[in-house]
Amino acid sequence: MATPWWAVSLWVFMATPKKMFKGYALVALLFGCYSAAGKFSPTAGFVALLVIAGLWPALLKSSLQFRLANTSWRGLRLRFSGSLAGAYRAALPLFVPAALLVGVGVVQSPGQPPSFWLAMAMIVLGLGSLLVWPWLLWKLKKYQHSNYALGAQQTHFSASTWSFYKLSFKVMGVYFGLAVPVMVMGAILMSVQGQATDAAAASNLGAKALAALGFLPLFMVLFFCVYAYAQARAQDLIWNHTASSQVQFHSRLSFGSLLWLTLKNWFFMVFTLGLYWPFAAVATRRLRLQAVSVSTTLLPEQLRTAGLENAGDAAGDAAGDFLGFDIGL
């Protein structure tokens, strides 16, 4: 008789905000340098972007090692076995659209409007970036989820590129489905206020300003709704297509739970001027892990015994390149 399948979600995320802070601080420093260089000159900004692109795959690999070494299931730590070369193949293409756009800006004369052909090139690059983004994201997730290990089980990633495009279309549909009513309401309100008499022009201007401020929170909530929906559906898509020969991952991440946590995290990040970010990252990671369960044809004891034989590898991951940290990808 075949061994029955069983599924349970018993995950523990052991990283602390203090450990994760240095990764987020490094990301902030890198992009702060890029922003400062861009203000100095377009060429300096372009060089800074190339430097970040050159470092990012190595940081990504270290981040994944850190994250997996601090994640355990039933006391068994996960491992990440991806190579540095694979990280460069997966992550470097993400910077190509941005590098091309910044490169076009470098050839633009300061203070001069762009020529027709230069403007067309920027439009084509922008639209092209949107078209290839789902494919670039698929390449990144394939690298990540084809190199996870639980015990002696090595995962593979079976989601297709087309599934990422379908998810992108759904997210766009949700965005426009929520944004259009909000914009219509705003346009109607502005139109009604615009019909006020000239004598009330001053007060009308103040009313418009208050109305604009009133719609700002709505657009913020709209953004968080779309963000939480995209994150929840992407996690389900990715983890439900992650498996090994004898282990299958399942994800059922609640959109409502993720939205509420996202709103709470951003409230505290604004209140603390960003210092709450590592705590928000830990809370989000734990929520997302709790939505993942594991099915296997192996008995728990067999999986755990195989994992103990590889414990040394997981310890090595924890002290991986750059001493290990999470950059939030």
Rank of each mutant, 00 (worst) to 15 (best):
H250L: 05
C225Y: 10
A179P: 02
I188L: 13
S245C: 02
V282D: 01
K170T: 10
P110Y: 10
T16V: 03
M183P: 01
G126T: 15
Q108K: 14
R67V: 02
A230T: 09
A209K: 02
L298S: 06
L210V: 12
W73P: 02
V47S: 09
R252Y: 04
A15R: 07
G23I: 09
L10A: 10
G151D: 00
K22N: 14
K170C: 07
W266N: 11
L101F: 07
A99K: 02
L259F: 14
T71M: 01
T43G: 10
S109H: 04
A291L: 02
L222E: 12
K139I: 14
F164D: 05
Q112G: 01
G312T: 02
G177L: 08
L118M: 14
V192L: 15
L127K: 06
I52F: 07
L92V: 12
M120K: 04
D321V: 10
R286L: 13
F169V: 13
T3L: 04
P114L: 12
W11V: 06
L261P: 06
L258H: 14
S293E: 14
S35P: 00
G173C: 13
I327P: 01
A149V: 01
V124H: 04
V247S: 03
A314T: 05
P278S: 14
I188G: 03
A243W: 01
A211N: 11
L218A: 14
Q248T: 05
G75R: 10
I327T: 02
N310V: 00
G186N: 08
A232P: 12
G75Q: 14
A243P: 00
L150S: 03
V270M: 13
S251P: 03
K39Y: 05
P217W: 09
N204W: 08
T305R: 10
Y276M: 05
A91L: 08
F224G: 00
D198E: 15
G75E: 10
V292H: 09
M122H: 09
G103H: 09
P97C: 12
F176K: 00
K18Q: 06
F223Q: 11
G316Q: 02
M269F: 01
L205H: 09
L64M: 15
